[in-house]
Design a protein around this nucleic acid. Structure first.
Length: 830
RNA sequence: GCCUGGGUGGCGGAAUAGGUAGACGCAUUGGACUUAAAAUCCAAUGGGCCGCAAGGCCCGUGCGGGUUCGAGUCCCGCCCCGGGCACCA
């Protein structure tokens, strides 16, 4: 009687076996090459979703495959356990964040286990555990000592709904990345990490990560860092104002400096308020400044790019030609970039051009395109391309690209400016006015000021007896026992910092902690990190292209500079998988298009879910969930199951230890199948190397189809049948491990596939396949012919010309050329 | 605007170094098995045309050109869609 495929039973059985035998636990082995495969760890929100399943399935296939390839594979998992949802649950449902978080972890762990992922669970890391965050508190202090962490008051992004500050990276379209509320600008004190110190190095390494990281992730990071090279120039003020004698501007176009017809300051610039003092313009200027400052970021940008400004009545002098230049305040100048002052060249900058048109300011052409003459009166737009410098004193006649350099040299030689590189990147604001995060280990003392908590007093533990009112303000600041503390320096009364660290700090080093998760003498064991790190293959969603991936790169470099490790980059290779969508939209509660992984596992089993995730789409692309599609995956595994059971008896009859018969002794059908088996091994191996799981599954399906058609006849055919069936089971293993293990066992093998080396394909067998030579006439396929694999060009030509169909096409025509592509085709040109 | 990724049947997708476009799967249709259904198996399935048939011809990878014996793939010029950045001087 046939035993039917029962995934529930099989999967439970094998998960228990793997678990009991601890097959996925690894330790260092210097005699073997290591491979560290890591998927981005989950936030314990409560339940895993299909995005997790996809991410972790991909990682698991890589881990199992690399293990079979002989690597020592580190494949850990943990929990990004701090964060706002836990605190919101506390406010809404009165459950403590810690309890909520640990309950979720327990639940999600069960779900992950049901999917049969090959994690070394002994290395599980939970970031809200004091034994974890203790070390980042220590690193915080080391960073403070080196000026890499500092406190400042600044205008920050404030999310009114989350009631906390957000980093620039966490604001999307002027909205909070998490709750989508509109972000406000607020002046506040907070702690920062000096990521800008690393701007250049972060940028440099982007070049070196080429071909290892997806192009678009690198492009996004490059964009985000936003380097621009230029020069700062002092424009002397006509009269001293508020102790200032000049205005310093930043420009990337010093070649246009002779075309300056006005200057513009950001409304936020300190001089903006005073430039018009005592002049008739004063009132208008103050009104304008007040109005613009009152606008939110959105309003300022969304006003359909309308350029607005006001003349201050003040002038400065262009140091290059002594011209008197009027000074404006303009809404399109931003204080945060450059010096907050710009020189305006309407002829060669589109924004300046629009502004000049609006306010009737002169337009002076100083760059002429080659073979063309620009005339300010006819210009509809600014000319921003390179050209020849004109009306530019001693620089006239130079190509602008060369002139740019000459002007900079002149500025530096005269001492009224200097070369300057600006970055768009800002320092990483890490203060969060929330409870559920790692406390910042700082004490404020009236006498001593800002005092770091000494190493011996770490960790600064998060107190658990906290009330969650949701009424605003940091809950920590209301915990007397936490706030009141003795100053570690002088022993007098001090107050603890009540801000916690951004949760992105925890995720900036968890991949290092996995190397020695229980290490208690430091953040990690240097020797173990040396063995395991860097991560050879990192896998996660594209949504972290900037945020997490930039922070982790920065933090790793900081740890290196603190002498803790010698890593330049944490992640050697990066794979970003697409989202799982349904009906064209991301799965979400509000759209009601969520498919719960648990339901699918209960219905079809984990192997089916895994196969569908791998087969439905190439990894980088979005995967459209399809109820019919997963049925197909289930059907496929059922066919594999039936094939093994149908073949089992016949295989057994063939005897166990029969060697593969020689190719020559095989019948045509067997020969063909054996060649196919080896071609499939090659194809699946190549595909797994390149993460082309969809075509790997397809190749196994094709082999299954071929074996199903196979009609064995005689003992030798049975051996080929056995080899084919076993190949299917083994090739399937990394992707659908439970069914593979079960079938492998049922085929009479005692050893587990977990420990079995990967299959190898036989070059000779693959090479012995007959080749199909396509015959084209004038580039169009007209016929094809089967040839022996070692036929030479002449033989192939012969065969082509003697083909009946070809003959009719070339009859009576002059043959101009014959092209023979080895092993592929012949093209006859007539 | 700049930077990126993409556009192939009814659908998801394949074609790895310029060499048979549409593998594999889904869906659909027809057939077998069954009292029937489900499951399973077999067959057909890009479009148009010729033929009783075996079979054959033409068109076809967003659009227009080009290179080549040969282009989904390379080059030039466009169009459309997704993602990122953006008064950044």
């Amino acid at each position: 009687m046939e035993v039917s495929y029962d995934p529930q039973w099989i999967e439970q059985k094998w998960q228990e076996i793997w678990n009991e035998k601890r097959v996925y636990e690894v330790s260092e082995d210097p005699s073997r090459e290591k491979y560290y495969v890591l998927e981005m760890f989950p936030y314990p929100s409560g339940r895993i979703h299909m995005g997790h399943v996809r991410n972790y399935t991909i990682g698991d296939v890589v881990a199992r495959y690399k293990r079979a390839m002989g690597f020592k594979v580190l494949h850990p998992i943990g929990w990004d356990a701090f964060g706002l949802p836990a605190e919101n649950a506390a406010i809404e449902r009165g459950i403590h964040p810690a309890k909520w978080t640990y309950q979720n972890i327990a639940q999600m762990k069960e779900q992950l286990k049901r999917l049969g992922f090959s994690y070394d669970w002994t290395r599980e890391v939970t970031t809200c555990d004091p034994s974890y965050y203790k070390w980042e508190q220590m690193v915080f202090i080391r960073m403070l000592e080196r000026g890499l962490a500092y406190k400042k008051a600044s205008v920050v992004n404030w999310c009114p709904s989350c009631e906390t500050v957000l980093a620039n990276e966490q604001v999307e379209d002027e909205r909070c990345w998490r709750c989508k509320s509109e972000v406000e600008q607020k002046e506040m004190e907070g702690w920062f990490f000096k990521i800008t110190d690393y701007a250049e190095e972060l940028l440099d390494w982007i070049e070196k990560l080429k071909d290892r990281w997806p192009e678009r992730v690198l492009a996004m990071q490059k964009n985000w860092i936003g380097k621009s090279t230029g020069v700062e120039i002092d424009f002397p003020l006509e009269e001293e104002i508020d102790g200032e004698t000049s205005l310093r501007i930043f420009t990337t176009r010093p070649d246009t400096v002779f075309g300056v017809t006005f200057m513009s300051l950001a409304p936020e610039h300190p001089l903006s308020e005073v430039l018009a003092k005592g002049k008739p313009q004063d009132k208008g200027v103050l009104e304008f400044i007040h109005r613009v400052r009152g606008q939110t970021g959105i309003e300022r940008v969304s006003e359909e790019a309308k350029k607005e400004g006001v003349f201050t009545g003040a002038y400065c002098i262009n140091p290059f030609n002594g011209e008197r230049v009027p000074i404006y305040i303009a809404n399109f100048v931003v204080m945060e970039y450059g010096t907050g002052v710009i020189m305006c060249v309407p002829a060669h900058d589109q924004r300046d051009f629009e502004f000049a048109k609006e306010y009737g300011l002169p337009i002076k052409v100083v760059i002429q395109p080659e073979g063309q003459e620009l005339n300010p009166e006819d210009m509809k737009n600014a000319y921003e391309e390179p050209g020849i410098m004109v009306d530019s004193g001693e620089f006239s006649g130079l190509p602008s690209e060369i002139g740019k350099e000459k002007v900079i040299e002149y500025i530096e030689s005269k001492g009224f400016g200097k070369r300057q590189i600006n970055y768009r990147l800002r320092d990483w604001g890490i203060s969060r006015q929330r409870y559920w995060g790692a406390p910042i280990p700082i004490v404020y003392c009236e006498g001593c000021g800002v005092v770091p908590v000494p190493d011996k007093d770490l960790p600064v533990e998060l107190p658990l007896d906290v009330e969650f009112t949701g009424k605003g303000g940091s809950p920590l600041s209301k915990v007397e026992g936490f706030v009141r503390v003795m100053c570690p320096k002088c022993g007098r009364d001090g107050k603890r910092e009540t801000d916690t660290m951004d949760t992105f700090v925890e995720s900036s080093w968890y991949f290092l902690r996995y190397a020695s998760p229980d290490y208690d003498k430091g953040m990690f064991d240097g020797e173990k990190v040396k063995y395991w790190l860097p991560v050879d293959q990192y896998i996660g969603g594209i949504e972290h292209a900037i945020l997490h991936l930039l922070y982790a790169r920065f933090y790793t470099k900081v740890l290196r500079d603190l002498g803790m490790c010698d890593l330049d980059e944490p992640f050697l290779n990066l794979l970003t998988q697409g989202m799982v969508i349904k009906d064209g939209a991301k799965m979400s509660k509000s759209l009601g298009n969520i498919v719960d992984p648990d339901d699918m596992i209960a219905k079809y089993g984990a192997d089916t879910v895994r196969i569908f995730m791998l087969f439905a789409s190439p990894v980088q692309k979005d995967l459209d969930w399809s109820d019919e599609g997963i049925e197909g995956a289930y059907r496929f595994l059922n066919r594999v199951w039936r094939l093994v059971y149908d073949s089992r008896k016949r295989i057994a009859d063939s005897g166990k230890n029969v060697e593969t018969p020689l190719m020559e002794s095989l019948g045509a059908q067997s020969r063909e199948l054996l060649i196919r088996v080896h071609k499939t091994i090659k194809k699946v191996t190549d595909d797994l190397e390149r993460f082309q799981f969809n075509t790997a599954v397809a190749a196994i399906m094709e082999l299954l189809n071929a074996v199903s058609r196979f009609e064995p006849n005689g003992c030798e055919d049975m051996v080929i049948l056995r080899e084919s069936v076993e190949a299917i089971v083994r090739l399937l293993y990394p992707m659908a491990p439970h069914i593979s293990e079960e079938l492998w066992e049922s085929l009479g093998h005692a050893e587990s596939l977990v420990d079995k080396p990967w299959m190898e394909w036989d070059r000779e067998i693959v090479g012995s396949a007959e080749m199909t030579i396509v015959i084209q006439v004038n580039g169009k396929v007209r016929s094809q012919v089967l040839m022996d694999p070692d036929s030479d060009e002449e033989e192939i030509k012969q065969a082509a010309f003697s083909d009946e169909r070809v003959k009719s096409y070339i009859a009576g025509k002059e043959i101009k050329r014959v092209i023979v592509v080895p092993k592929k085709l012949v093209n006859i040109v007539v």
